[in-house]
Design a protein around this nucleic acid. Structure first.
Lengths: 247, 247
DNA sequence: AAGTGGTCTAGACCACATC
DNA sequence: ATGTGGTCTAGACCACTTG
């Protein structure tokens, strides 16, 4: 069945521009999986003809989507659905292997299916009493432990990880999520706070119990906006640093 | 002297687009003070004609400048040089009068001309041994002290503040800088770290000495990119919180 | 009513990546 | 050589703000 000149006119709400309506329509098609993460959208000319708009209008729609981080445009190659976050490492919050872009060594110290605490269930959108996959891991630089992470995952998406060999996982989780589970982390919200280490946490970081720590609580979301991971990252408060530019 | 059809063609470096060159030229005119902060630029049609480019090209240049926070475009009114930062209050880092947008009460507890510490002099671009104006202030919510600030200003710009009545300054410094000294803070870089309060600092915050604190070190810059303020803000670490979204 | 920025069009041409 | 996105033009019309 040939997809011939399928002119699809997007309805425009009053008070909304044509390119905004177009962007919303295209966004819906991306989220629905019509073009999976990493794949290319049709050429501008094609999309413009399909929707019966001028090239300039179609381009404004794509530029909007690119600004929102949904797609990536590459001169001469095409327009691609973004595969996942780039360079959103937790280590940007701590001065350990700073600046080098070095990836810390990851060691999974625990993997269990547990009833999710109420707060975690709420963030993941699970019902009270539902179980979730909990990972505990230590990330080290030059053999020195830097941060201790508690990671909660909904088993419906991550069943694949329950029995696989954690030794083979490598040092980064998001590429693993994409390859093994088809879950693409697209956006994350990090909340920074301050606290003290419990005895158990301190042990993994080679610090005394009660030592001050920075706590980063992350909600990670997929393309559709569903929360797919909740992560608590703790590290020595004195190693914490972060820079924000305001304008 | 009538500024008639003064066609000013902007030279375009190879590998650079015409609108980028145009934006750079306009940026230079803004920084030079040709259109002071808060004032309006000429209309699009006028600027386009002046530079001998199409309207669309001129618009792209202005959009670039707007994205960089240099100007603000208002539909139906005009294009304006941004007067200063909006909503960059320090209090966004702490949970005190959170969400209410309430402005904390400010009390200046010290104002002195002192030799700037090396680190401060470096940040302000002063020579070693130069003096600077140091302010110490406490900012309170509902009568409770929230943060303690140490502020360093170059006297060349802020001489006006050395002798004026601090009681009359009000609760916000940046509007004061603009009105009394003609200094417009346009961009700021905040570095976040954790530490402990000295006895003197703790006293002003009604906390015990050695109490953990969040430290925000700010460099503030004017339109031309010169550092015009260095500020150290300290508050109870347990009241600290900050949220970042990554995509 | 007049002036401002925002949208949309139609088309030409340029720059980059790939085969 | 071909296909992709990026730039630039010229002009029409719309939407918002102000006197």
């Amino acid at each position: 069945m040939a997809e011939s000149t399928h002119l699809t006119v997007v309805p425009v709400e009053p008070g909304q521009s044509r390119y905004a309506a177009l962007a919303a329509a295209l966004r819906a098609r991306v989220v629905a999986g019509e073009w999976p993460p990493g794949s290319a959208l049709p050429a501008e000319q094609t999309l413009a003809a399909e929707h019966g708009v001028a090239l300039g209008t179609l381009r404004r729609a794509l530029e909007l989507m690119a600004d929102q981080g949904l797609i990536e445009r590459i001169h001469g190659r095409g327009t691609f659905v973004r595969a996942g976050m780039t360079g959103a490492t937790m280590m940007r919050f701590f001065r350990f292997g700073e600046g080098t872009g070095e990836v810390p060594v990851s060691r999974i110290v625990s993997r269990q299916l547990l009833v999710a605490p109420a707060e975690v269930a709420r963030r993941l959108g699970l019902a009270r009493g539902d179980t979730a996959l909990r990972l505990l891991r230590v990330r080290s630089f030059a053999g020195q432990p830097g941060v201790y992470e508690e990671i909660w995952l909904p088993p419906a998406l991550f069943g694949e990880l329950v029995e696989s060999d954690t030794q083979a996982w490598g040092d980064l989780l998001y590429p693993l999520f994409a390859e093994r589970c088809g879950v693409h982390v697209h956006r994350a919200v990090d909340e920074i706070a301050f606290g003290a280490l419990t005895a158990a946490q301190a042990r993994h970081l080679a610090l005394p119990a009660g030592h001050p720590c920075a706590l980063v609580t992350r909600n990670a979301y997929d393309l559709a906006g569903h929360c797919v991971e909740v992560r608590f990252t703790r590290g020595d408060a004195h190693a914490f640093h972060y820079t924000v530019t305001i304008t």
